[in-house]
């Protein structure tokens, strides 16, 4: 799949799905330089992420005692690993300039908006409200991550789900959860 980068430019821009942030392009200077330096936004983000995480761990590890190869301190092994991660990040970015890319595809914004807060909501309310109402709320929030879910269906579905969970987890498996919590005056 390796082809000279400049023949691919037009396809790359379309193919990579999203336009690059402006500063990456601007930093390339004049237009003709830009044609030779094209990055896959996917690989660029991935490589940058590796480098960023690597730097974070490297700086943290450097603050710890590194020790010697004979007696490694708590920072030695992580410092080496962080270095490798940074190196890999650079390779990912460099490789990203040459390969053909597939589009990023759609991003589940709605999914993230409803799915990710669900476990957090459960964490915030399970002690206060208790297992039953907390689980019901969690399920309800999660249910609306799908565009196909209708309110009536959601209530029925999550109601059944809560009943099932209480029977299985609370009664049958005997997990030590308070079914109704102090916020409800119990």
């Amino acid at each position: 799949m390796r082809r000279p980068a400049n023949t691919l430019i037009s396809r790359l821009w379309v193919g990579s799905g999203r336009a690059l942030p402006a500063f990456f392009i601007a930093s390339n200077g004049r237009g003709e330089h830009m044609r030779n330096l094209s990055f896959s936004s996917r690989d660029l983000i991935c490589g940058a992420l590796f480098i960023f995480i690597g730097l974070f761990f490297a700086i943290q590890a450097y603050g710890l005692e590194l020790g010697t190869a004979l007696r490694m301190g708590p920072g030695y092994f992580p410092f080496v690993l962080a270095g490798i991660l940074i190196l890999l990040g650079i390779i990912v970015i460099v490789q990203g300039t040459q390969l053909q890319h597939e589009p990023m595809g759609p991003i589940a914004w709605r999914g993230m908006l409803f799915i990710l807060p669900a476990p957090i909501l459960f964490g915030l309310t399970v002690r206060g409200l208790g297992f039953v109402p907390s689980l019901f709320l969690t399920g309800l929030v999660a249910a609306f991550a799908s565009t196909k879910m209708r309110p009536g269906t959601a209530l029925l579905l999550v109601g059944g789900l809560t009943l099932f969970s209480v029977i299985v987890f609370s009664y049958a498996l005997g997990l030590p959860f308070r079914r109704f919590g102090p916020w409800l005056g119990q």
Partner: peptide
């Protein structure tokens, strides 16, 4: 998937009853 989310939450919370794990 609402059921999967619910079971995930219950499962993780029951490891050490620690809400931090849910975050």
């Amino acid at each position: 998937f609402p059921a999967i989310i619910a079971f995930c939450s219950i499962g993780v919370y029951s490891v050490n009853s620690n809400v931090f794990d849910l975050y």
